[in-house]
Write a protein that binds this DNA or RNA. Structure first.
Lengths: 203, 203
DNA sequence: GTTTCAACCGTACGATCGTATGGGTCGCCT
DNA sequence: AGGCGACCCATACGATCGTACGGTTGAAAC
């Protein structure tokens, strides 16, 4: 209630989001283990007690950064210009998750970092799984829409091809993060894989 | 010199390898940040001073664990039964990098962990890039051999399709690590992607 | 016998971490 | 006016970290 913000929904103050953004920056810049209460405080120009007030424990701070990462990703791909074809829509949405500007780079690095942090951090696994399932459903819906449009063969099963595309996206993103491939080759790579996996005739 | 060991080559003592293996286990179990001198000492049943003697700094210990990981991977896929077809040879070698037994699981988790640890740890990036380039060359050679055997179309460029397969392997491995997919679906997934990317007619 | 040296053990110091705790300031409600 | 809760600041404690440093042992070199 009260003043609404531009994020997912209410109940979180603006400083709490700033702290989460600071945490994202730290994770993206120096790795998942570099996240600490004091560093977030320095990054956000507050004292340690402040971040401790908004996020009583470190896991609270971490899940806030993780949730905000996937929320930022979802917000960006949802506010994307519509394409004429469902399959180019899918590929453009996929490419929107790759590192392009500083913001998307942060989110991609955090996504890879939280995937790698799953062993030994059970609460990270849960958040990652939720986001992955959401992405899975979203990819499957795009495939189905492409089938209804007659662009891809109706015989292929979205439930089996979807995970392939998901894996391709994860792999390209991991390489983009680890070897900082330029956006062009990353995007081209995922587009090529999608075309081949969906058996789209090469132009 | 003198007694030779079963690892890559000489000059490293047996206890140094044990310490590297302990480091690998720790990284695989509790994440990259959980690696510490004292934990390795506990894991290997020695004191902190001992690991400090073999690896004067923590980065020395870390690069030893990383190098040993890729060496263990290379050793396992090199000691693999030969297949009749070059493409099944490639897929079986790819699947050999996926988490099957405890050893390969450790190596896959460490590989993902070191990919995620690249930002903020420059010395990790170097090691990862060497291993990735080696894998790239190895995949490209398998593709070329398949083309010479007439199984895949000679028109496709190994230099562009290779990175796709590499990305697919990374993505499937990441999902296997993060969501601990069973080996069957992971292996099936990479095989399917390879078949589609190489445009092998579906059986 | 003496020296040397690699391997291993144990301790210590400074830094950083997570977190508990208490005080201070402001706006809002009764 | 007085209480009250949200917000922010500051300090402190215990734990863990990387690493420097010295001691001990045993075998090889001279």
């Amino acid at each position: 209630m009260g003043t609404h913000d531009d994020s997912t929904d209410a109940t979180v103050t603006a400083t709490a989001d700033r702290l989460a953004d600071a945490a994202i920056s730290i994770i993206a810049r120096d790795g998942f283990d570099a996240l600490s209460v004091r560093r977030v405080a320095r990054e956000a120009a507050v004292t340690g007690g402040t971040v401790q007030h908004h996020y009583p424990s470190k896991v609270d701070l971490t899940v806030a950064a993780l949730d905000r990462t996937v929320s930022r990703q979802a917000h960006r791909i949802s506010s994307l210009p519509l394409s004429d074809s469902p399959v180019t829509q899918l590929t453009s949405e996929l490419c929107a998750m790759l590192p392009a500007d500083p913001a998307s780079t942060e989110e991609a690095v955090v996504w890879i970092a939280m995937s790698a942090a799953v062993p030994g951090h059970p609460f990270v696994a849960e958040r990652r799984r939720e986001a992955a399932e959401q992405a899975r459903r979203w990819i499957a819906s795009r495939i189905r829409r492409s089938q209804e449009a007659g662009i891809v063969d109706a015989a292929i099963d979205p439930e089996v091809v979807g995970p392939m595309i998901e894996a391709a996206l994860d792999g390209v993103m991991l390489q983009a993060v680890a070897e900082d491939d330029p956006l062009g080759v990353s995007c081209q790579r995922v587009c090529d894989i999608v075309d081949r996996v969906l058996q789209i005739p090469q132009s």
